[in-house]
Amino acid sequence: MPRTLLKLLLPALTGLVVLAVWQAVHEFLSEEMRFLLPSPGAVLQALVDHRATLWRATLNTTEGALLGFGLAVVVSVLLAVALSLSPLVRTSLYPYLMALQMTPLPVLAPICVIWVGAGLRSVALLTFVIAFFPLVVNTTQGLISTDRNLVELFRLYRARPWQRLFLLQVPAALPYFFTGLRIAATIAPIGAVVADMNAGSSAGDGGGLGFQAVIFASQARYPALFATAATTCLLGFVLNAAVLALAWLSLHHWHDSYERADR
């Protein structure tokens, strides 16, 4: 059997097994306890029934997630360049970057709300806070991990500092940056949903997926709650796939982590 077919078939098979077990557990539960685990069919039905609400909520969450994620990319790259300049800068700033990461989102959320108001702005800001740390740490590490010999070579040719940065350090840091980007892309949608739960707002066209989850839970619409979970999960996959594609585009020519056929 061709490998590619196997690669598609195996996860599909796992999915079917999971669905079967899920359905079996649902059947096994007594009638009055079945609300704990709605059947896959009921969740699918909820997905269809609430598609308009979920779609709108997904768009809102995506907007917040992308805004925060984009802001995190820009700020962390700039900050990483500053941090790469000297160990003294790193020593003075790292503890505070850590502190930002250590503070849980639900605690930061109310602060954000009193600063910038509930809704999109808070969601974007909180997503930024959570996505920012892996990006800045990885990118900085990449920028300072340049091959010593190549640094010497650039000194030998009297390259200007900006030439060294753009021709040597930035390309060398790209694999590290993409590692950070993948982590950030995974946690950004989660961050956006959690932020939306804590600092979301139904003002305007309604809240995001986090807000919707809170509403479905309070209305005891459990199949819809499961459908919301599936939607957030899907959002994370899409964002991750986009980052993977981007990494492949910019790295596969030259980086050893991609297998080559033309060697």
Partner: peptide, 16 residues
């Protein structure tokens, strides 16, 4: 330089 073609590597000293 890894992400740089043979030709660009050779050009490098001339950029300065």
């Amino acid at each position: 330089l890894a992400r740089t073609t043979a030709l660009e590597n050779v050009e490098l000293p001339m950029l300065y």
